[in-house]
Amino acid sequence: MCLGIPGEIVEILPDRPDLAMVAVSGVRRAINIGLLDKETVAPGDWILIHVGFALSKIDETEAKAALDFLESIGQAYDDEIAALRQSMIEQG
Rank of each mutant, 00 (worst) to 15 (best):
Q75K: 07
I9S: 11
A20I: 01
I47L: 04
C2H: 11
L48Q: 13
G7V: 03
T61N: 14
D78A: 14
M21Y: 05
R28E: 10
E8K: 15
R28C: 06
S72N: 03
V51L: 15
G26C: 10
E60Q: 14
I12D: 12
A66F: 13
G7R: 09
E60L: 03
E80K: 02
V27I: 10
P17Q: 13
G4P: 02
D59L: 02
S56L: 04
P43E: 01
E71P: 00
I47V: 15
G26H: 11
I12N: 14
S25W: 08
S56F: 05
R28T: 09
I47S: 01
L67G: 02
P6E: 06
I49F: 10
I58L: 08
G26W: 08
L84K: 07
P14T: 06
R16F: 00
I81T: 02
F53M: 09
G34I: 11
V41Y: 12
L35C: 09
F69V: 01
S25L: 08
L36T: 01
V27P: 01
Y77K: 02
E11Y: 05
I12H: 07
L3C: 13
D78C: 03
R16S: 04
E8T: 12
I9D: 01
E60S: 14
E71N: 15
I9F: 04
G4T: 13
L67W: 10
R29L: 02
D18M: 10
G26L: 08
A23M: 12
G7D: 07
A54Q: 08
R29S: 07
L70G: 11
A76I: 07
E60C: 04
D59E: 14
I58N: 06
I12A: 03
L36N: 02
W46L: 09
V24G: 13
W46N: 07
I81S: 02
P14Q: 11
V24F: 12
I9H: 12
I12T: 09
Y77L: 04
A63M: 04
K38M: 06
V27R: 03
F53L: 03
R16E: 00
S56G: 02
A20K: 00
A83G: 10
I49L: 13
E11K: 12
E39W: 12
L13T: 07
A42C: 00
L13N: 05
T61L: 03
D45F: 05
D59G: 13
L36V: 06
D15S: 15
